[in-house]
Design a binder for these strands. Sequence first.
DNA 1: GGAATCATGTGAT
DNA 2: ATCACATGATTCC
Length: 298
Amino acid sequence: MNAHSQIDLAKITTPAIDITPDGSDYETVRRVIEMLTVDYRNQPSLEAIAAELGQSPTQLQKVFTRWAGLSPKAFLQAITLDHAKRLLGKEELPLLEASYELGLSGPGRLHDLFVTHEAMSPGEWKARGGGLVIRYGFHPSPFGQALVMATERGLSGLAFADIGCEAPAYEDMARRWPNAEYIHDQEATAPYIRRIFDRQQWSCDQPLKVVLIGTDFQVRVWQSLLKIPFGKAVTYSDVASDIGQPTASRAVGAAVGANPISFVVPCHRALGKSGALTGYHWGLTRKRAILGWEAGNA
DNA sequence: GGAATCATGTGAT
DNA sequence: ATCACATGATTCC
């Protein structure tokens, strides 16, 4: 990754093609969430936040509610510890009874966005992406600009990269499969974005194909995440039990953190046992945003 | 309620 | 081998 990736990086500055209204709202929403939660002690008022952003309170209120399906106040409540605990404690793990006979490859009805997944064979994994062609592109999403990566077998990567921070996100992803050949191809990746973030299109008629590229352990963790229903959450130790290694919760955390297809593989639905949001590769604020958005759209 | 500390499995170097 | 973790339980204040 030197001269080769230089060329690719140059292409990244290509502006995204399509703009959705949701995409433009996110920056505002993100900053509101940040102010609301960073020092929640101060409980900043809507007026104070609006002033900071240079907008009128009513305008801000409207944008936020349109995006989240929830007023800022309700949103704040939806991401408190209290609510998270309810999310967790509700019912006995939905994970446990869901069968694991799928094995490492094969179709399945998983989470609300219907997904068929296949994993790389051990040989393919060892090649670190060698012989693989990966097409990638940047597109707006409800949670900021997204980087999409796909092989001809299906979606292989989804990352978040705010405007101006495209290069680090690209490198973060490309580093995982260093021997693959990367081609910037907005047209190839655009259909995935439309598909993923439009809930109307979540149906089983035509499942979304994803390709899980990772170690055996990681793939098992990601498959487990795929079984978490929309608007629900589990703990890292729940996942550990689900894959048959109840003492490996910490290792699960590491594997969850390595999830290459964020949002689609719902790693944001993994919480600490206390209900605390412990971490997120693309920023805790974004994790709150996604969780709150799901609360408002359940 | 924290802070400090330990047990712990995986993956990268 | 060793180290860093998106953990969790225990044991102190």
